[in-house]
């Protein structure tokens, strides 16, 4: 009884914090998503207008589609890049000091704010930017490439730049904890380098891959500022729909969109968790 009481008390502070600052706001968002709005105010109601607009509008569907497109492409690219970098750090660098040195090198870009990192691409990729000048100087193109900036390409480039580290860290972390004798055993049993990768390393790195993927998916799906800046406001994702609604005082509509986005992200993540039981693997 006493230990029971003590453990309840120990769990209480976190429960209270989560209930007040996570659960309650989410419940509020859910409630407000059924409210109505005028130009300048919101009023309590129980109506499905916000949802029926969301599901009835072809624009919303295409915005969700482009959000998913950004997510999937960014996820694939950050996974390939992140896995390669982590693999190199974990298995090709033998010296721990060099390993940690190179790992810290990866984090240097994170010393500046991510908005600055993002905006610094704009002069680089622009019509008269360095990239185009270099390409034309080398005679690869005659005219500046327009699609380098303010396009889906530049949006995904910025996402990859911003979020690859979130892939590198957890993958690297699980890779260094793989027992090296397993790799030696595989080699002794005649496995080729590729077979070791697919049969030993990748299965054992799955938890890291999943954690990195959850970071990237959640960050990309919830983003609005990268898409706005890097597409020159020409593309939309769900985050921008929400921020537009908030800007125009349409809180109920923003709340409804948030609820749908939240459900979408949770579905995506629960699908991912079907493949790996993170708690067991850790």
């Amino acid at each position: 009884m006493r230990t029971n009481f003590r453990s309840w008390m120990l769990a209480l502070p976190l429960t209270v914090v989560l209930a007040l600052f996570l659960l309650l706001p989410m419940v509020m968002i859910f409630v407000v998503s059924f409210w109505g709005a005028t130009e300048f105010s919101i009023y309590p109601a129980f109506q499905f207008d916000n949802y029926s607009y969301l599901f009835g509008s072809s624009v919303v569907w295409s915005v969700f589609a482009s959000t998913l497109m950004y997510t999937i492409v960014t996820w694939v690219v950050t996974l390939v890049v992140g896995f390669t970098v982590a693999y190199f750090l974990a298995f090709h660098i033998r010296d721990t000091t060099t390993q940690m040195g190179l790992f810290l090198l990866c984090t240097i870009p994170f010393w500046t704010s991510n908005i600055i990192r993002m905006i610094s691409w704009v002069p680089f990729l622009g019509r008269n930017g360095l990239a185009n000048q270099a390409l034309m100087g080398m005679g690869i193109t005659d005219e500046p490439l327009e699609w380098l900036l303010f396009s889906d390409f530049s949006v995904i480039l910025a996402f990859v730049h911003l979020y690859t580290l979130f892939m590198v860290v957890p993958i690297f972390n699980t890779m260094v904890r793989i027992d090296r004798s397993l790799i030696e055993a595989a080699r002794d049993n005649g496995a080729s380098g590729f077979q070791i990768l697919t049969n030993v390393i990748i299965p054992l790195t799955k938890p890291g891959i999943m954690i990195g993927s959850i970071f990237v998916v959640a960050l990309v799906m919830g983003d609005f500022i990268t898409v706005r800046f890097m597409s020159g406001s020409q593309s939309a994702n769900v985050g921008r729909l929400i921020s537009n609604d908030i800007g125009l005082l349409q809180y109920p509509s923003a709340a409804a969109t948030s609820v749908v986005l939240l459900v979408t992200v949770m579905i995506v993540i629960s699908i991912m968790l079907r493949f790996v039981n993170i708690r067991k693997e850790l």
Partner: peptide, 17 residues
């Protein structure tokens, strides 16, 4: 600000998207 402001805003979002 138009009488049809809310409608206009929705159409504007379509333009952006």
């Amino acid at each position: 600000v138009m009488d049809e402001n809310q409608y206009m805003v929705r159409k504007w979002n379509e333009f952006i998207a």
